[in-house]
């Protein structure tokens, strides 16, 4: 068992970050996080998984507000966020590039990020594209801030960033390169990253195990397809 797709490696890497989570929630437009959460649950059934847009994995009965009320109470341990830009302070931009009032390119909007980034204890950032265009020195618009002044109420925040090339941790208000995905190098990561980060004791991201791949390509794939049929059809198996 050696070959795997880039999406499978990212999903496995994200799933492993859920090892101490009791309840992980997945927001809109998040097929990779949904895959990671369902994989983690397949391997550890005690993990509670909430997936917006799913019927099977959405146990809320109080409307759209309930996810956010749960988050503010600390009932969700882990959430995933992404951005069209992410910077070295872990700020994320989901709104627009260029000037806000006259954008170069407009994107959907901030969704729940401005709120959940502060309130969910562990936020895992994910972004398949790892280029200087995406990982920038400073985002053009802060949908959600990576760090806050000490007096602000902030029980949660960014803890990890998983890209198509590497895994970073976010420690003491900066990114630290933890591992580089198989087939890529630390130099390649450095060239592709537009912000400063720390790096020591960098390892290679472990490849998916036989057990992880079997779960991914079996029950997890069909489970993901309930919410993300197009993603599930193209992202698994080699």
């Amino acid at each position: 068992m050696s070959a795997f797709t880039p999406a499978e490696l990212m999903a496995v890497t994200m799933a492993r970050l859920l090892d101490t989570s009791r309840h992980v929630a997945v927001g809109a437009l998040s097929p990779l996080p949904a895959t990671a959460a369902l994989l983690a649950q397949a391997l550890r059934p005690a993990l509670r998984v909430t997936i917006l847009g799913s019927r099977r994995h959405l146990a809320f009965t109080d409307g759209g507000r309930e996810l956010f009320d749960c988050a503010a109470q600390g009932r969700i341990d882990t959430f995933f966020l992404s951005g069209v830009q992410i910077d070295g302070d872990a700020n994320i931009n989901l709104v627009a590039t260029g000037d806000y009032a006259q954008p170069t390119k407009r994107f959907p909007g901030s969704f729940g990020s401005a709120y959940l980034y502060s309130l969910v204890k562990t936020v895992i950032l994910f972004k398949p594209e790892h280029t200087p265009r995406v990982l920038v020195p400073r985002v053009d618009f802060i949908s959600a801030a990576g760090v806050s002044p000490p007096h602000e109420y902030r029980p949660g925040g960014p803890r990890h960033l998983v890209t198509g090339l590497a895994l970073f941790d976010f420690i003491d208000r900066r990114f630290v390169l933890r591992s580089v995905h198989p087939g890529h190098t630390a130099d390649e990561v450095a060239r592709a990253t537009g912000f400063e980060y720390a790096a020591d004791a960098v390892t290679e991201t472990p490849a998916p195990s036989a057990e992880e791949l079997a779960a991914l390509r079996g029950p997890v794939r069909s489970d993901v397809a309930e919410t993300y049929p197009r993603f599930a059809a193209k992202s698994f198996g080699v």
Binding site: A72, S110, A114, Y115, L119, S143, A144, S148
Partner: peptide, 13 residues
């Protein structure tokens, strides 16, 4: 009142 949002450019616009 609502928690979170502090630090976001949403407050600016």
């Amino acid at each position: 009142p609502l928690r979170g949002i502090l630090g976001s450019d949403l407050l600016r616009i």
